[in-house]
Amino acid sequence: MSCPICGEDSVKQFRPFCSKRCADIDLAKWLNGSYSVPSQREDDLDDEIQDDVEVKDRPH
């Protein structure tokens, strides 16, 4: 199996990566939003915005 970041052979300790460096690069891509799962619905963002507005309008 090759490392998905650099293509080198993977190492058992860091599988599926070849090193901690490549594992950290992959983690950084997840954390900064480079990897994402597309939504099936186009109006998901609109729903989230509307939900936030409704919550803020309610008295505590």
Rank of each mutant, 00 (worst) to 15 (best):
R58L: 15
I5Y: 04
P4K: 01
Q13W: 11
L45C: 05
N32K: 12
K12L: 03
S34P: 03
E8T: 08
S10D: 01
V37K: 08
K12D: 00
D44H: 09
D47S: 07
Q40P: 03
P38G: 10
R41G: 11
C18F: 04
I49R: 14
K20C: 03
D57C: 12
A23M: 06
G33R: 05
D24R: 14
R58K: 12
Q40N: 11
V53L: 15
K20P: 09
S2H: 08
I25Y: 04
E42I: 13
W30Q: 07
A23Y: 00
P4N: 04
S36I: 05
K12Y: 04
G33M: 08
D57Q: 13
P4S: 05
E54T: 13
I25G: 06
R15Y: 13
A28S: 01
K29E: 05
L27C: 02
D24W: 06
L31C: 08
I49M: 12
C22N: 00
V53G: 02
C3H: 02
K20F: 11
R58Y: 07
R58H: 08
F17Y: 08
D52C: 15
E54W: 06
C22Q: 00
P4I: 00
K29V: 03
F14E: 01
P4E: 01
L31A: 09
I25R: 05
R21I: 14
S19V: 04
A28E: 00
S10C: 01
Q40F: 08
I49V: 15
I5N: 09
Q13L: 15
P59H: 07
E54I: 14
D26G: 01
V11W: 01
F17Q: 00
D24K: 15
P16E: 09
I5W: 05
Q50N: 09
Q13H: 10
D44K: 11
C3G: 04
R41A: 13
D24G: 06
S10K: 01
P4A: 05
D44V: 11
D57P: 03
K56T: 12
L45S: 10
P38N: 13
N32H: 09
D43E: 13
I25M: 11
W30L: 12
P59E: 09
R41W: 06
L27P: 00
I49C: 06
E48Y: 09
K56V: 14
D9S: 12
D44F: 05
V11L: 07
L31Q: 14
R21H: 06
K29M: 15
V37I: 14
D46K: 13
G33Q: 06
C22V: 00
Q50K: 14
P59G: 10
S36K: 14
S34Q: 07
C6F: 09
C18T: 02
R15N: 11
D47T: 08
D9W: 04
